[in-house]
């Protein structure tokens, strides 16, 4: 993201007295810049500073300035509170499940699409599998609710085909994580193929032709040509995914949570919401949020370093 040479006359690195002159010359650009800049300061950076309430016992009546300072009290609580530890575990466990089960689906789907010879068919399938990405989580979970209810189509079929009693998919804690992962697969795996397909489009067709002449089967071609070509993309995306291991999606989890599944399903983001907004425990919830942001920062910077080591550029 280095500066680019634009059409401007170069005025950089001149004596200080020129700064005023330069700002005057660029005054119209500043008019364009300032509304956005104010937005970033007020709604992105002031809240960052607002994290100081994590070191206070904030009370709305006393405000930022007069609330009692308590140092690291809330951060100590994070590691002592059984609930937080369970929530942290749920978050990591869900991330793990998503990496193991959802992540490979995009790769496989991309390879399958890449093998289709009819461009028309390929494009139709692509159009269909990208679509769920643009639906809201409310709609996706609304659909899931309708299909999995006790009188929904899945339970009706289980009853008529196997004579089973209705399965309480949405209330049973054992079904919570599998459902969340399946929803992610349904909604995002098609969209996730885009970046792999781009990597695949760079493979020279002559490689496949040579392999075919040598008698390689299609599966062998995938194994020896396609997969190696995807290797660096896979590694980099995997590393970056590890960088956001604490982000598992607020809306989806919140919409899926019920009193029955709270124990297995509550993750860091939903915990912060329930604790902070619904229980008005502002300071403690902020401390948990800040802890998450901070760990996230370390992980993502680390992940990006690691990704760059693999010979490609990182995300920023």
């Amino acid at each position: 993201m280095e500066e680019k040479v634009t059409g401007d006359i170069d005025l950089t690195v001149k004596p200080k007295r020129n700064i005023g002159k330069r700002m005057w010359k660029e005054r119209y650009l500043y008019i364009l810049l300032i509304p956005g800049l104010l937005y970033f300061i007020i709604y992105r950076y002031v809240p960052m500073a607002g994290n100081i309430i994590a070191f206070q016992d904030y009370s709305a009546f006393q405000g930022f300035l007069h609330s009692e300072w308590v140092g690291l009290k809330h951060f100590k609580t994070i590691f002592e509170d059984q609930e937080v530890i369970r929530v942290l575990w749920n978050t990591l466990y869900l991330s793990f499940l998503q990496i193991v089960f959802a992540f490979p689906v995009s790769i496989i789907l991309a390879i399958m699409l890449n093998e289709v010879r009819s461009n028309v068919y390929k494009r139709i399938v692509q159009s269909i599998v990208y679509l769920p990405h643009f639906l809201s989580w409310v709609v996706v979970i609304g659909i899931v609710t309708i299909l999995l209810k006790s009188n929904g189509i899945v339970n009706k079929l289980l009853e008529s085909l196997f004579g089973m009693d209705p399965v309480p998919f949405l209330q049973d804690p054992n079904w919570f994580m599998p459902l969340v992962v399946l929803e992610v697969i349904w909604k995002e795996s098609g969209w996730g193929t885009i970046i792999f397909l781009a990597a695949l489009s760079g493979i020279s067709p002559s490689l496949y032709e040579a392999a075919a002449v040598d008698g390689a089967s299609r599966m062998q071609q995938i194994w020896h040509i396609t997969l190696p070509a995807l290797k660096s993309t896979i590694i980099i995306l995997l590393i970056l995914r590890l960088g956001s291991v604490l982000d598992v999606g607020f809306e989806q989890i919140y919409l899926m949570l019920t009193p029955f599944t709270m124990k297995v399903g509550n993750v860091l983001d939903t915990f912060v919401y329930l604790k902070g907004i619904q229980n008005s425990d502002f300071s403690f919830a902020t401390a948990v949020g800040l802890f998450k942001s901070f760990v996230g920062l370390i992980l993502i910077v680390g992940a990006n370093r690691l990704a760059k080591r693999f010979g490609d550029q990182g995300v920023y």
Binding site: R44, G289, L297
Partner: peptide
């Protein structure tokens, strides 16, 4: 802002 989010509660308070 890509790598460090302000957090839900402080943003809520600014809003």
């Amino acid at each position: 802002t890509f790598v460090f989010g302000a957090g839900m509660i402080p943003t809520y308070m600014v809003v």
